[in-house]
Design a protein around this nucleic acid. Sequence first.
DNA 1: GAACGCCGTGTTTTT
DNA 2: CACGGCGTTC
Length: 743
Amino acid sequence: MSSAAKKASVDDLLAGLNEPQSQAVQTPSGPLLVLAGAGSGKTRVLTHRVAFLIAAQGVRPQEILAITFTNKAADEMKERIETLVGPVARTMWISTFHSACARILRKEAQQLGYRRNFTIYDAPDQLRVVKRCLKDLGIDDKRFPPKGIHAVISSAKNRLVDAEAFAGMVDDFFDDTVARVYSLYQEKLFANNAMDFDDLLMRAVSLFQLLPERLDYWRSAFRHILVDEYQDTNHAQCVLVNLLGKEHRNVCVVGDDDQSIYSWRGAEVRNILDFRSDYPEATIIKLEQNYRSTQTILTAANHVVSNNPGRMQKNLWTDLGQGEKIVMAEVDDEHAEARFVAGEVARLQQEDGCKPRDMAVFYRVNAQSRVLEDLFVRYGISYRVVGGTKFYERAEIKDALAYLLVIDNPSDSISFNRVVNVPKRGIGAASLASLTRFADAEGLSLTEAAARAGEISDLRPAGEKALAGFSGLIEELAATAASSPVAETLDQVLNSSGYIASLQAERTIEAEGRIENLMELVGVAEEYGRRQPDGSLREFLQEISLYTDVDKLTEQSETVTLMTLHNAKGLEFPVVFIIGAEEGVFPHSRAIEEQNLEEERRLCYVGMTRARQRLYFTYTTSRNLYGARSYNLASRFLAEIPDDLIDFRPMAGPARAGYGKTGARPSPYLGKDISGDVPPDLARPGRDEAAAFFHPGDRVAHAVFGGGVVTAVERGGTVAVRFEDGSERKLMVEYAPLRKVSA
DNA sequence: GAACGCCGTGTTTTT
DNA sequence: CACGGCGTTC
């Protein structure tokens, strides 16, 4: 490449960047912290910085390790870098922490006593192992719920506390039990030549800690490390970055403390706040210009999040103009909510020329999508749900994959048990018990034991025959796998096992759906074969096991997108609806109980800042939740948005007296310890708070008397209000359906 | 050995 | 409400 061409391309890389962005791209090697507010061009900076390192600093692509939060983000980044630097981009490591660790561990497995064909267990698999442990240890799974146990184990792993260390710091009975399970759980994973998600991180760390020589190797392999969404890294990930990066110190992390929303799975905002102490000489750059949202949306989001203490100060601004006000719609119940959203989706298409793909609906929990989906189907609005029951967690998909997993890793007993009698081939609990006993006695895997079914004395002839048949099937499939593309192996799995046939025999709609899903899986395998002609079954399985639904989210044109607020991270849409903005839903009741409102607020901030032009909030006065009707307050977050940014749409029909039907937008939230279960009345400002809450001059609204202005605040929780109809009334704040509209 | 149905229970977010 | 676990029945 001539130097002129090179220079031109470097100029290109910097063209169109604002000052701080350009600085972040050009800052020479060494630690760099980029605090990137929502929509401030973070991805742009990352991709351009990588390109800059390659084009201007002479860094070789394969020396770069770039970590993203999802596989989708990784793919996008790869693509964008490729357009900047060309096909060499393909030699870079751009992936999630988990994928990167898995890749490293494939090469290093033997160092840890694993074989390189280890299986990665997903959440349901992990739970199954926990359950088995509880059973083996004779622990009552009523008193020790597997999910809870697993959560504790997972959190320990994220803090790099292994089973032994955990046992050493136990200080109550529950943890003591967990410690025993943890230890057995690890044994079982190891015996199955399997790792869970957390192991990928923890084992990578221990590899590096145990074997300095391997650390040296990987350290010099990745001379430059870049980490996106650093605010959502956990301790293990942070340690990993430091192990690899602390020596050469070419560590660039990008993130936004206001967007940390994964503390429940071990993420520690502290990591980004502490970057300066880990790397005192770090350059720190703030990106504060937002290129995504209108000023209205931005101001509103800033107001909300500024209620959180201890933030890194940021001042997001935009020059995109004020734009539309934020619509806040009060509706009867979840059905009215769905109707409202569907109505607006239709209207925006007709009147504003919005495309369905421009619109997204965010909710707090997956269950909320149901009602919406029902109505969308009836309205003929096509939509897609991101997340929820994930494609790769569907039973039929997991069954098919379990066959492949057993073929690839015969030690994997979870997968073995999953498929040994699916479809039914007469291998029941009794036969399996014999098989397991035999395997344990002989020190064999279940697959190996099945191959020697004839030697199992207490097996009934029918069971023996069935097991031998299954064993033969697996061997046959393994032979195919050894010499054929993945898609072909999969096809044979589905047919030779009789899996498809048994579904066809069901003759139900669900079974047809399952077959379609399986065909889609075959499609995925074919696609893989095209992309990676030399790809192995193992690599295919690894890719799949770390793949989530968000990763699949491609720009399909004519559908509205439905997803949880968590899944919305990193995305943007011209129009965003945030539904269920109610106390107990969002913020979630459990977050209220656990006093973790700051994270909920950040979640709100993330949701709001996804919107480019229009932002809607909806809240219901009554909602069916878990089979029972509940009456919730409007979310406190709504009250944190300034009035002049809001287009309030009270419930249709005459305003009715009573809680939540005031026709006034929700007032600033006063209650401090109000959980979703507290009767609504208690959530109203009490007598003592009245004086602090209302001030003369406040604009208020009354459910019956309409709008007015506070003229006086009296003792005993009484305020005087002059209403728009000219009347003046004294009202008991404690009981009157009175809402503050603005101060 | 499999299928059905009952009951109790637990409900956030996910790499 | 929805699912998993467990007992009953064929």
